[in-house]
Design a binder for these strands. Structure first.
Lengths: 360, 360
DNA sequence: CGATCAATTGTAAACGTATACCCTGCTAGC
DNA sequence: GCTAGCAGGGTATACGTTTACAATTGATCG
């Protein structure tokens, strides 16, 4: 296959591309007959260099296939253009949607996104702190409560205007005065519960999230508040803890189904669990919503294709993602100058068909 | 709250932690009364340093709260310990599962994971290539066909034993001799189709993925092969392209439902689409599997909670993720020395309740 | 034509770490 | 007690950029 030389292929280029050991700015400078400073300027401040020189450098660059070593750049500039987002589970479609918003904004701003899950203990608070401190990332978006995180590294470093923004949930006390963007989880949970009440339900149970999660804590709080306000009792065993997964919800639902005083409606702290709950109720031979009503939270994309379609609270997930990323950017650029007030985005009750008036 | 001084708190530490401008190895060395080389050795080769010295250094480190600047480390060592994975959609639970495998292995090996989606053009092939070339990442896992990617950057660089591993699908010709790990998509699709045939179906349609995706191309190929082998005709309009999303599948399904010669079974190229398909069929007032059978592909976690539960092809998603990551590690460490043969993992037909014998 | 000034380019230092190489001092063997 | 050997620690350089500053060029104006 090695032909002699009868085509007009620019042979030199090919040859250069062949080995190309590790072409640095030096090599380009040599080839263009200028100093490395000029090459650097050509790339970063093209207006500060003569058109003629720019050409020479451009030629040299395309000849060598040079591209700046990002490692060196990051090192020199002290910035990686990487942000980290910490969340409970990438698998949850709600967070996926938030991530889409983040990713879009990140891309627009020239950042890459590093994802870390807390769910399976894939990363401890210490490690996250270490990551921050060691400059691997320019900033962090917290979509998950990280209480243990607060005290150790954070408090010491927070004064150094550490770029952290909290998303999707209230900021915990330890993280006070970090910016945040989220819906009003308490009000939203109240609204969901009130909707069930307005349909005539009185025996309303809840499948909530882990106790450690501030987000689900708020939702449970809203549920309890609504029940209290309506003067409805919450029986022992009606509030059962899931782990925000389908499997967890199924287990929790089984417990509820076997409760002596079975509820007529179940409020799930997220849609993922509502799906598990729905399946489990149907598996028990009951019908939804005829026998039991179910309401979820998040409005993930599967919510409208369940059978029956899920009534739920809708969050503007992508928008949250976008906003949280933009706030992080401002925090990175402006330091503590950027505002740190919480930003509340609107939620919405989406009525589909998993809730009906109770049978009795 | 600012008390005078009546407790035994080590005041110096507190004071040091207070400002901590940017403590570098130099500061630690100064404090420990040793050279920076020794500090470095203490961290990276503790056995090459006296216990006594080690102590002094350790003390200085914890006093200052020093942690090595990863940027500088990466720069110096020429490695970032970050790998990039390129995939069509993080939202797809199948890829989420693969990612879990990747993440687990990455964590075990000390890598962080950078995710890039191709679906929404969030990153062009050029950008990915640039990323690679500029050392931002140590290696890349491709879970998505990147045909346009092949020629430009890759071919030029592939000789430089670029650490790339392909996952979930056959490696395209341009990427030849990169390692890969995936199931045998063609055989699996054949198996799915044959199962429908074995149940007595003759009018079998398929909702496939984008033409650009090698993975879905293979599945379509398997379907066609099985049909041919069984001497069953595929009518015009029975193979309709979805985009691997619920919405796309619903649109595709509507087309199938209106087909003059309506199929009795539908093979969907992934479960996400099968869910959309299922919903659409039921929305049309038909029953599954009584009126129409549906079979999916991937066995995502929602597959067992649909109504009816989805019959599908199961892939060992996490295992694929793990293996692909480990192969990438070997590639990073051993260069081209590491084998580059494709690694086929087993798939499995999971029979649930979305397929039955045809009515007629 | 020479001087002054602006525009452009070159020089060199710095970022924080790792390490090759050298030096010191100790131990052990004779 | 002397030397060979070696382990522990110091010195200094390199990694590839960016950038402050110096130097040079070219141009404009007197």
């Amino acid at each position: 296959m090695k032909q002699a030389s009868n085509d007009a292929v620019p042979r030199q280029e090919a040859a250069e591309a062949e080995d190309m050991p590790d072409v640095s700015i030096k090599e380009v400078a040599r080839l263009a007959g200028v100093s490395i400073a000029t090459v650097s300027r050509c790339i970063n401040n093209p207006e500060k260099v003569t058109a003629k020189t720019r050409r020479k450098v451009q030629d040299a660059i395309s000849q060598t296939g040079y591209s700046p070593n990002k490692l060196a750049q990051s090192f020199r500039r002290g910035r990686t253009n990487i942000v980290m987002v910490v969340l409970p589970s990438v698998g949850d479609p709600f967070f996926t949607a938030v991530m889409n918003g983040i990713r879009g904004a990140a891309r627009a701003k020239g950042y890459s996104v590093l994802i870390e899950e807390t769910q399976l203990n894939t990363m401890t608070a210490d490690e996250i702190g270490a990551m921050l401190v060691s400059n691997q990332t320019d900033g962090i978006i917290l979509l998950a409560s990280m209480s243990p995180f607060g005290n150790e590294v954070l408090s010491a470093k927070s004064k150094r205007r550490l770029p952290i923004v909290v998303g999707c949930e209230n900021v915990s006390p330890e993280l006070a005065n970090f910016p945040s963007v989220h819906i009003d989880n308490i009000s939203a949970a109240k609204e969901a519960t009130n909707y069930l009440i307005s349909q005539g339900h009185q025996r309303i149970a809840m499948v909530c999230g882990q106790a450690s999660s501030l987000l689900t804590k708020d939702r449970e709080f809203g549920y309890r508040a609504a029940m209290k306000q309506a003067e409805l009792a919450i029986e022992d065993g009606w509030v059962v803890e899931g782990d925000l997964t389908i499997a967890g919800a199924r287990k929790a639902t089984r417990i509820l189904m076997n409760h002596g005083n079975r509820p007529t409606a179940i409020f799930c702290a997220n849609d993922e669990m509502a799906i598990g709950c729905l399946h489990e109720v149907k598996s028990a031979g009951l019908q939804v919503p005829r026998d039991i009503s179910i309401i979820g939270f998040d409005d993930i994309r599967y919510a409208e294709v369940t059978d029956p379609p899920l009534t739920t609270i809708s969050q503007p997930a992508e928008e949250i993602g976008e906003r949280v990323m933009y706030r992080l950017c401002r925090r990175i650029e402006a330091g503590n100058g950027a505002s740190s007030s919480p930003e509340i985005v609107p939620h919405k009750l989406v009525i589909r068909q998993s809730v009906a008036k109770p049978a009795s």
